[in-house]
């Protein structure tokens, strides 16, 4: 607990968000605009991130297409987890068929959340292409998944699985920051 370190403060996060938005804008202009774009964030911090990124995207392309995805029902560990899963609403008020979807999450690690999100999106329709944007890629993949847009890339640091990266975003958290701390040792591994 005492070894918590801050990797980024709120002003740093603002510039990281702008960087992500810049990468996405480049991709949008490099791809023909015959297929519309939309941005979808994964609860409960990817949705906040998606909201902030969307403000800096080319509004004529993305229009008002901002969605929120709750992946609880698609998790692959539902029969194993020991805490209470909290089901929230999925709110994607547009048809995703044929769209370029930018999927947004805060931290990419094992890739299991993204797998769940992909399955959930496929059940909602058939997007033309799904892109992945993450604030932090901390490495440690357990599935063949990679991000298209990354603001902080920690893959080369080869962090061990006991190192936790937490993204804090307002209004869900008190302040914007990215912190790292060792995993608390519990009774189970």
């Amino acid at each position: 607990m005492s070894t918590m370190t801050t990797l980024a403060d709120s002003s740093k996060i603002a510039s990281l968000v702008s960087e992500l938005a810049g990468q996405i804008n480049t991709a949008i202009s490099a791809n023909e605009s015959t297929h519309p774009w939309a941005i979808v964030g994964i609860r409960s911090r990817g949705d906040l991130l998606a909201g902030r990124i969307s403000e800096q995207l080319d509004s004529s392309v993305i229009e008002e297409r901002l969605g929120v995805l709750d992946i609880t029902l698609y998790r692959d560990d539902l029969s194993e987890i020991t805490h209470q899963p909290v089901v929230r609403t999925t709110e994607i008020p547009f048809d995703i068929d044929g769209m370029n979807i930018v999927l947004v999450d805060d931290v990419l690690m094992s890739g299991r959340s993204i797998r769940a999100a992909l399955q959930s999106l496929m059940d909602l329709g058939r997007p033309r292409r799904i892109w992945l944007a993450v604030l932090v890629d901390r490495g440690g993949r357990e599935l063949p998944i990679s991000a298209d847009f990354v603001a902080v890339d920690l893959k080369s640091q080869q962090l061990d699985s006991d190192t936790i990266i937490d993204v804090h975003l307002t209004p869900l958290d008190e302040q914007d920051c990215i912190t790292t701390h060792p995993k608390q040792k519990g009774p189970t591994k």
Binding site: R88, T90, E91, D123, G125
Partner: peptide, 23 residues
């Protein structure tokens, strides 16, 4: 009831199924 709210949209999408209780 809050959990039910999260389930409500399952009935309105094109594929009306989620894998939560598979098996």
């Amino acid at each position: 009831l809050k959990t039910a709210h999260g389930f409500e949209d399952v009935s309105t999408r094109s594929i009306k199924k989620v894998p939560a209780l598979r098996g």
